[in-house]
């Protein structure tokens, strides 16, 4: 067994004013893994990232990064981490290239290596043409790219991203996903936080759900999904339907006049469902699996029921 990229033991953080940031979190992220930290706003994701990246003071607990204790050997531990924070945190009056090169120097790269790495990461993030521009004028998407370039400049073994796709358009999001997969394929461990469950399902091999400063579920993505006790199917109807049909142990909800959602218990054949629908005169024209299964799982874990979320 290789040393885990991150080991967290009993992390606790209470902010001045009494707000609980984290309340006894244990977490392990395998080296080379792609780990997703999921949770609603205020769950404690940014607090956890802040503790890991030394931006927030730890009250209690222990963090190790590739075996280096962050409290006892901060220099060795910090050198291995690249952080992409949730909020912009560069000097907007500085040119893009100087921001990245400056961070390279802070991580102890020689001026020559810093120049070479700066060129490489600006190229990787499509920022080469903007190297001399001040960061102030960049669009939101490019600001995020700048922060990713900056995080990668010292070739970290662990890349930590706090909600990297919040407020990013679909195309940019897919571009970022491809980049993260590629970096992970090259051996970089990735930890990202998100409240887009689809993103976590697409990218991460392991997940932890966090809420109220506590981890409420964790495991391999596939296994967590298998833990779902039903599949939700979306049915498009041939004719208007004014109330959800009663379908026995299959719960049905009307989304709109021509759409139904049904929760089919795992392993139950669908034939009986369609027989019953036909009997009630409901004609189904098409059928798909509702994709945000993680959302269901999340609500199942958090609230113990399958409360619906509407986009």
């Amino acid at each position: 067994m290789s040393t885990p990229a991150i080991t967290m033991e009993q992390l606790a953080k209470r902010y001045a004013g009494g707000c609980v940031g984290l309340d006894g979190v244990d977490l392990e992220v395998a080296a080379g893994g792609f780990f997703g930290l999921l949770g609603p706003n205020g769950a404690g994701k940014t607090t956890l990232i802040g503790l890991l990246s030394s931006l927030v003071r730890l009250d209690r607990g222990r963090i190790r990064v590739f075996g280096h204790d962050l409290a006892r050997d901060p220099v060795a531990a910090k050198a291995l981490i690249g952080l992409v924070p949730q909020e912009v945190n560069f000097n907007s009056f500085e040119p893009v290239g100087e921001i990245v090169a400056g961070q390279a120097a802070y991580y102890g790269l020689s001026p020559r290596r810093a120049r070479r790495r700066t060129r490489a990461v600006l190229e990787l993030l499509g920022l080469t043409d903007r190297a001399r521009q001040t960061a102030w004028g960049l669009s939101g998407g490019f600001k995020r790219r700048l922060m990713i370039a900056r995080a990668l400049v010292h070739e970290p073994r662990l890349l930590v991203l706090d909600e990297p796709t919040a407020g990013v358009d679909v195309e940019a999001r897919h571009g970022l996903w491809a980049l993260l997969r590629r970096l992970n394929g090259e051996g970089i461990t990735v930890l990202l936080t998100t409240h887009y469950l689809e993103e976590a399902e697409q990218l991460c091999d392991h997940l932890a759900f966090i809420d109220g400063g506590r981890v409420i579920a964790r495991g391999a993505t596939g296994e967590l999904l298998r833990g779902l006790d039903h599949d939700t199917l979306v049915l498009d109807l041939a004719a208007d339907c004014h109330s959800a049909p009663a379908l026995g142990d299959v719960a049905a909800r009307r989304v709109d006049t021509r759409t139904l959602e049904v929760d089919v218990p795992r392993g139950q054949p669908l034939n009986a469902l369609f027989t019953e629908l036909s009997r009630q005169g409901v004609q189904v024209t098409s059928l798909r699996n509702k994709s945000n299964r993680l959302e269901q799982l999340f609500f199942q874990r958090v609230y113990g029921d399958e409360r619906e979320v509407r986009a």
């Binding site: 931006l55 220099v75 910090k78 050198a79 924070p85 912009v88 945190n89 400056g102 802070y106 991580y107």
Partner: peptide, 16 residues
């Protein structure tokens, strides 16, 4: 200024 614009964080995360 570094606190206000938060780029003090560039120094805090680095192994310094």
């Amino acid at each position: 200024g570094a606190k206000l614009q938060r780029h003090i964080e560039e120094l805090l995360v680095a192994p310094l």
